[in-house]
Design a protein around this nucleic acid. Sequence first.
DNA 1: GTTTGTGCAAATCATTTGCACCGCG
DNA 2: CGCGGTGCAAATGATTTGCACAAAC
Lengths: 159, 159
Amino acid sequence: MSLEEQSSEDTKKEMLAFEKYLKDKGLKITNQRLLVAEKIFSSHNHFTAEGLLDELKDNKDRISKATIYRILSIMVEAGLLEEHDFGKDYKYYEHIIGHEHHDHIICVQCGRIVEFIDEQIETLQRNAAAKNGFTITGHSLNIYASCQKFEVCEFNKNK
Amino acid sequence: MSLEEQSSEDTKKEMLAFEKYLKDKGLKITNQRLLVAEKIFSSHNHFTAEGLLDELKDNKDRISKATIYRILSIMVEAGLLEEHDFGKDYKYYEHIIGHEHHDHIICVQCGRIVEFIDEQIETLQRNAAAKNGFTITGHSLNIYASCQKFEVCEFNKNK
DNA sequence: GTTTGTGCAAATCATTTGCACCGCG
DNA sequence: CGCGGTGCAAATGATTTGCACAAAC
């Protein structure tokens, strides 16, 4: 099985999970919801509501901004999407597979977003919280850094 | 020297630093700027623009919201204040002394904000960035947690 | 006196919401 | 059918900005 086929397999599985979630919640399966979900599941990039809207406008299919926001919020609720704040005044979303947690490095030059995970950091965080009498419910670690790759600057593309 | 006197000593030093910054930048020393700076330097809590406005309204002195925002932005620029995003739709500010870096634990129950610093985490972050070819320019680590002190819930006071 | 600061109200901008109509189940 | 979904435009809420007047230097 090629990588492409594997990827489309994953997409199918996720589409089914989404449809199941909708059914279980008594929500309807509409064209807009399917289109948005397919677009999201077929990519692993971090994206914004605006960016998604643009991509879907290219298609013949016309989806309103309000609907995009409404669908994003359902998918976050469903645990299929994660919402991030990278210090801009709009939110980023990220397609979650499984639920593997990770942190982000955001390039202050080109806006590139790199994911990483460090189990030691995770453990130290839990300890720090415990030491202060807290039980962690979540966390967000963003490292702002410079990747020194000016030539591939995508800073404003990613909106 | 008592703690109070010490604290007021610090405040004076910071006021001088602020005034020096204003002069160096060719900015004017106005009543509003002095009032806002004094209020901020005399406390070590995390606060919001709205909260600050409320506190200053209690006084006879009337400062407009626009001016508050303008002064906050100068003080951030001057390195006297740090801006934080704790996942709300408004920003938090924090009075910096020296520049000691620290991270935050935010209670999802009562909104209490606790500061902590873990040198091991700092080091691991630098390593993680380096491993990915980045040079850190800054970072933000927020741990969302539950402090189980419902009785002291200040969640909505802090706005 | 000039230049910069302030207050007010209007503008922004991402996101949300009310409402009339539409389409899934 | 009937209720949830959608599109549109208007509302929201934090922050910003234009402008006329006021204060600092």
